[in-house]
Every structure is written in C-alpha cells, then in structure tokens.
C-alpha cells in the first residue's frame, strides 16, 4: 500500500493540476494578507474559502483521478498486490497531495507574514487541520461515487451534486426545518444535524475556536454546554474522524467485490 501511495503521489505531484491548486492557494494567501495585513481577519476570510472550496476541489479531483487512473488500476490489479491496498493507496496519494498543496500553499504566505509570532497560529493550524480533514473526507466520498459508477459523466455528476447538497442545499433544508419547527426545542436536533454534514461540522469547529462560541451559546443550555467546553471540540473531531473512516471502509469493502 505504501508503494502504491508513493507512486500515486509521485504521479500527481507531477501533474499540472497539483501545481495549479498549489499556486491558487499560494496566491490566495498572499492576496488576503496583502489586502488586510491582519492575520486574524485573514483567517476568518480563509475559513469561508476553505469550507466551500476544499470540498469541491477534493470531490472533483478525486473523481477525475479515479477515472483517469483506470488503466493504472487495472495494471496493478494483475500484480501481486492486495486489492484494498491498491485503492486505499491511490486514495491516500490523491488526498495526501491535495492536503499538501493546501497546507504548503497557505502555510508559506502566512509564515512569511509572521505567523509564528502571531497568536493566530492556533486558529490557523485548526483551519489547516480542518481543511486537510475535508480533503480526506471529500476525496473518499468521491472515490466511493466513482467506484460505484462505471459511467464517467454520471459519476462526475453525482459527485458535484453531492458537493452541492452538502455545501448549500443541506443548510437550506436545515434552516427550513428549524423555522418550521421553531416552537419545539431544537438545540439537540441542530447539533445532530450539524454532525451529519462534514462541511457544517468543520464550520462549527472553526467557529468554536474563533471565539464565537459564546455567541452560539446564546440560544440555550445544550448549545452552551456543547460550545462552551472542550466537549464540543472533542466530539467534532471524533465525528470528522468517523466521516473520514466510514467512506474509506466502504471503499475497501466495495473494492474487494468489484469486477474489472
């Protein structure tokens, strides 16, 4: 598996798209810092970018890579290698190179602007960790979609739809259900609903750290307990871990049973 990871990673590191992605973040980091020169504010702006863009890019890249490396996969399948190793290796290669582009692309400008002397370092680290998690999650989800759909166009469509659903539509439905049932106690429901969407989960996790926790605690005891203590951070990270692990497990399970 390590070998497959190595070759996938190596293969991607030489693809144009990895550079485009890396340069995009590099540019974004510099432009943000150039425009306001305030690390903490740049971190907030960056959050908006990360929770929308990182999942989208993870999704599209994942699907694209999966379909494009079909031949590579078939070549590997005839080699004495365990099947799940092939897919997990490829997956880790893609997710790893994407995460690296993200971390380096954003890290370099921020470090150059004096991140280490700033107290925004924890917020920033959390941002990057969450970004890396989102990359892992959405690449895994897109690999699952691609594995279950032979048809490229269909697979691509489903993947983008999934992103659209989790990034926008889910929140819309969520909001509507909150408004419709506003006379009932809703805090537990809304916390649960947040847990079931990795984008919402990452967003609240970052908000927790960005000192808006008390603002979120505004609504009642359950929120207050969740957001006011470390419980919230711990549960959020555990859930992010689940979100990463479950698609990988499904991927490995499905891969074992698929015909090529």
């Amino acid at each position: 598996m390590i070998k497959i990871l190595k070759y996938s990673f190596y293969d991607l590191m030489r693809s144009r798209w990895s550079y485009v992605y890396f340069l995009f973040y590099l540019l974004l980091g510099f432009v943000l810092l150039f425009l306001n020169n305030d690390l903490s504010k740049a971190v907030i702006t960056l959050m908006n970018v990360i929770i929308v863009l990182v999942p989208l890019i993870g999704t599209i890249f994942g699907v694209m890579y999966f379909y494009n490396s079909k031949e590579f996969t078939e070549l590997l399948l005839a080699q004495p290698i365990k099947r799940s190793s092939i897919f997990i290796g490829q997956y880790l290669g893609v997710a790893g190179s994407l995460s690296m582009s993200l971390v380096l692309g954003l890290g370099i400008p921020f470090v150059m602007y004096g991140l280490f002397e700033s107290n925004a370092i924890w917020d920033f680290s959390l941002l990057l960790i969450t970004g890396a998690f989102l990359t892992l999650i959405f690449t895994a989800l897109s690999f699952n979609i691609a594995l279950s759909n032979e048809n490229k166009i269909k697979g691509f469509g489903y993947a983008v739809l999934m992103w659209l659903f989790l990034a926008v539509i889910y929140d819309g439905l969520f909001l509507m259900s909150l408004i419709v049932f506003e006379q009932y106690p809703l805090d537990s429901f809304s916390l649960a609903a947040t847990m079931f969407n990795p984008i919402d989960l990452s967003r609240t996790l970052i908000l927790l750290k960005l000192d808006i926790s008390a603002l979120l605690g505004y609504t009642g005891a359950v929120f207050k307990q969740f957001f006011g203590t470390y419980i919230g951070v711990v549960i959020s990270f555990v859930m992010l871990g689940f979100w990463t692990l479950l698609p990988i497990l499904r991927l490995s399970f499905k891969a074992k049973r698929k015909d090529f």
């Binding site: 293969d11 693809s15 079909k70 031949e71 590579f72 070549l75 005839a78 004495p80 099947r83």
Partner: peptide, 29 residues
C-alpha cells in the same frame, strides 16, 4: 493475491498512467 506473483499477465488494452516515463513504469513494476 500472493499467487499472482507466479503469473505474468498481458492486458488487452495497453493503457498506462500517462505521467510516467517508460523506464519509471518498468522500475515501478
């Protein structure tokens, strides 16, 4: 999967990862 160590297989369609050079592909296999 270990038994495949004893099999050499030539697939029907010769498609390979495009980013690799020939010698890298051979080295990889």
């Amino acid at each position: 999967w270990k038994y495949r160590q004893e099999i050499n297989y030539l697939p029907q369609i010769a498609n390979f990862p495009g980013n690799l050079k020939v010698k890298e592909l051979i080295a990889m296999i």
